[in-house]
Amino acid sequence: MSIQHFRVALIPFFAAFCLPVFAHPETLVKVKDAEDQLGARVGYIELDLNSGKILESFRPEERFPMMSTFKVLLCGAVLSRVDAGQEQLGRRIHYSQNDLVEYSPVTEKHLTDGMTVRELCSAAITMSDNTAANLLLTTIGGPKELTAFLHNMGDHVTRLDRWEPELNEAIPNDERDTTMPAAMATTLRKLLTGELLTLASRQQLIDWMEADKVAGPLLRSALPAGWFIADKSGASERGSRGIIAALGPDGKPSRIVVIYTTGSQATMDERNRQIAEIGASLIKHW
């Protein structure tokens, strides 16, 4: 067993022997300050990975656009099909120029040879490739089937209704393509630590998230040396920005953090900075 597999395998073990964890309200002060700075709603939740206990939250049951954070859930659904023998990570999918949508930095380079399901999930999570996400959605039956998968997991909140890039419209009070911080955190925890996926698939999912290449300005920018993070960011219209992450010190994840914001007129750089500052406060008061 590799060191990485050993780390994931021990998560349920540590759950039975973990020391108590305590929240620090200073982080919530920073979350509220971020709302003021951005002139927008901010949703935040911090969940103990082992016990599932909510350590701190702000607007945990308000809806926010999922943006590209849905791609982790999508690849979780794909992996569940792999575990059930209904899909193969090595299966090659061919597509055409007509399938390409905006922001497809990986898939646009493989029009001649296609990409495997594994490569598409990697592109969707690590590079947030939109065409990769659409091709993967097709393999499971579309957005409604992803919503059904989540319902079967016990998540009756999170929903995907449209494809890339339309799902990023982020219209106020529109429940399409939205989640709540509490629902997303719970669902992510189930995918990473529960029995829904095999150990190999849980490890694959967290490996893809750990290799995320487009979330550098967010929580990763505040991460001390030696800390672990596996994450997925998202951005969409109407000043929306978000990130879902499993992180912790000593090279292993111990908490789930979900941050969403929407309705801001601030620049992308400012939205990134506010999320990074929330992360810095979280780490300082860990």
Rank of each mutant, 00 (worst) to 15 (best):
I3T: 11
H5Y: 13
F6E: 06
R7G: 12
R7H: 07
L10P: 06
L10E: 03
I11K: 06
I11Q: 05
I11S: 10
I11G: 11
I11N: 06
F13G: 07
F14V: 11
A15R: 02
A16Q: 15
F17W: 09
L19M: 12
V21S: 03
T27R: 00
T27A: 02
L28Q: 07
V29L: 13
V31M: 02
K32G: 05
K32E: 08
E35D: 07
Q37R: 13
L38V: 04
R41V: 05
V42R: 00
G43V: 09
L49Q: 02
G52R: 01
K53E: 13
P60L: 06
P60C: 06
R63S: 03
R63A: 03
F64W: 00
P65V: 02
F70N: 01
L74Q: 00
L74M: 07
A77V: 09
S80M: 11
V82N: 03
V82I: 10
A84I: 14
A84G: 12
G85S: 10
L89I: 10
L89Y: 05
G90A: 14
G90D: 13
R91W: 02
R92A: 07
R92H: 12
H94A: 11
H94S: 14
S96W: 08
Q97C: 08
D99W: 07
L100K: 02
V101R: 07
K109M: 10
H110S: 09
T116A: 05
R118E: 14
R118T: 12
A123V: 04
I125T: 02
I125M: 10
T126G: 10
M127A: 07
D129R: 00
N130Q: 02
T131L: 03
N134H: 01
L136R: 00
T138D: 14
T138G: 15
P143T: 12
K144N: 09
L146W: 01
T147V: 07
T147R: 05
T147N: 04
L150M: 08
N152T: 14
M153V: 08
G154E: 05
D155N: 09
H156E: 14
V157R: 10
T158A: 02
R159G: 01
W163T: 07
P165H: 03
E166R: 06
E166M: 11
E166I: 07
L167G: 02
N168C: 04
N168S: 07
N168Y: 03
E169R: 08
E169S: 14
P172L: 10
P172K: 07
D174G: 03
D174N: 03
D174Y: 02
E175G: 05
M180C: 04
M180S: 15
M184L: 04
A185G: 12
T186H: 15
T186A: 14
L188M: 08
K190G: 12
K190L: 11
K190T: 12
L192I: 13
G194N: 09
G194V: 04
L196Y: 15
L197V: 02
T198M: 08
T198G: 11
A200Q: 15
A200L: 08
S201H: 05
R202L: 02
R202Q: 15
R202W: 13
Q204K: 11
I206E: 06
E210S: 09
K213R: 10
K213E: 10
V214N: 06
V214A: 09
V214L: 11
V214R: 05
A215P: 03
A215G: 08
G216Q: 12
G216T: 07
P217R: 07
L218M: 08
L219D: 01
R220E: 01
S221M: 08
S221P: 05
A222S: 12
A222D: 10
A222Q: 15
L223F: 02
P224V: 01
A225L: 11
G226V: 01
G226N: 06
W227L: 04
F228L: 02
F228V: 03
F228S: 02
F228N: 01
D231Q: 04
D231L: 02
K232E: 08
S233A: 11
A235D: 02
S236R: 15
S236D: 06
E237P: 15
R238D: 13
G239K: 02
S240V: 01
S240N: 15
S240A: 15
I243A: 00
I244P: 00
I244H: 00
A246F: 09
L247V: 08
G248R: 08
P249V: 02
P249G: 01
D250Q: 12
P253M: 15
S254P: 02
V257L: 05
Y260F: 12
T262A: 10
G263W: 14
Q265A: 14
A266D: 04
T267V: 06
M268E: 09
R271L: 14
Q274G: 07
A276G: 06
A276Y: 10
E277N: 11
G279V: 04
A280S: 13
K284G: 08
H285R: 06
H285Q: 06
